[in-house]
């Protein structure tokens, strides 16, 4: 098969009625963006999961390199002071 007979891949993001942000739900094939949105509706919201959908061509997503995990993600490790729980609560502060 050539590229003209295979529908391109799309990534689907769904926001639930209780959610504040769109969450990656999965992927699908569709011939164009209108059909991608409709296919996403048919595949990923049939159990009342969402009130808003985003679709984006998979090839348009720029992803970090899994092989570069060490240099990309080592820095925050061990920096406890970047987390609120690192700090002790002042005695005068209530309801925290």
């Amino acid at each position: 098969m050539t590229d003209t007979t295979v529908w391109p891949l799309w990534e689907v993001f769904v926001r639930s009625s209780r959610g504040l942000s769109h969450v990656h739900a999965g992927s699908l094939h569709a011939p164009d963006q209108e059909m991608a949105l409709r296919n996403a509706r048919d595949l990923y919201t049939r159990r009342n999961e969402g009130v808003s959908i985003w679709v984006v061509r998979s090839e348009d997503i720029v992803a970090s390199d899994p092989g570069a995990k060490d240099q990309f993600f080592e820095s925050p490790k061990g920096k406890d002071y970047r987390h609120a729980t690192y700090y002790t609560k002042s005695e005068g502060v209530k309801h925290l």
Binding site: W7, L28, L43, R46
Partner: peptide, 11 residues
């Protein structure tokens, strides 16, 4: 013809 359309028609 495609699984996406299969589900669309089923819905």
């Amino acid at each position: 013809p495609e699984i996406e359309e299969d589900i669309a028609l089923g819905n």
